[in-house]
Design a protein around this nucleic acid. Structure first.
Lengths: 116, 116
DNA sequence: CGATATACGCAACCACTGGTTGCATGTGAA
DNA sequence: TTCACATGCAACCAGTGGTTGCGTATATCG
């Protein structure tokens, strides 16, 4: 049973959280509940436009939603979708973990066998 | 205690496993124990050169090691380093998970409070 | 109301990277 | 020795994270 890890993951979702700036963005949004491109950019080492682009891709994969409020656009995290992303992280992690563990077990078995 | 997620992760390591092709590569290497650029490329929808580049970056961050063997170069996974990567996945995942859980708890509390 | 400040969106541009093709080099086998 | 095969290197292309510059809409303050 070869349970190919990579097949299970949504590459778009993964690559969305693959970018370090976007991870920090999600972090800030989780921390503060909501935020605008301008506000978030002030807490990051990148320009407002860069943040806006990132919020765009996060919005496109559904990890955040932006709603216009007067002259600003307020973004907040989509809990369900982020939960999905977290699940995928866990999935890939545990798959690799299992393989590493299996390899280790085999290595130990060989070690034991050699001790005869 | 704000345990900023992003600070804890090694961006190089993360971005190495962030690429879908490289994840599949790691997958194949784990599955088959070892492999060469040519051999691996035949099991993937990309050219040998692309695979070689990926193996290069994986090698640079220490997730794999390549040893020349005659006319071919044989790569294998570095268990310890992959374990580190898995730990980081788990770390980010559980941090977000905790925040989501906290948010949910608060939401429920508000819900309950409103029921008066 | 008018002027100024603020937040946004769009476009051009740059550097880097994943991918390709083409070619040269080194090593193994007939 | 010659042929086949695996690698390495270089040029090139498309996409993307980042920047600057500019135009536009919405608040806010005289």
């Amino acid at each position: 049973m070869t349970t190919a890890v990579a097949e299970v993951v949504d590459d778009d979702l993964w690559s969305a959280i693959g970018d370090p700036t976007r991870r920090r963005l999600l972090d800030l949004l989780l921390l503060e509940g909501a935020g605008t491109a301008t506000g978030l950019s002030q807490q990051l080492p990148v320009t407002r436009q860069a943040v806006a682009k990132h919020l765009g891709v996060l919005d496109r994969v559904g990890l955040v939603h932006g709603t216009p409020a007067g002259r600003e656009k307020r973004y907040r995290v989509d809990d369900a979708q982020l939960a999905r992303a977290v699940a995928q992280l866990a999935s890939v992690g545990s798959a690799w973990d299992a393989r590493l563990r299996r390899i280790k077990r085999i290595a130990e078995a060989i070690q034991v066998a050699r001790e005869d």
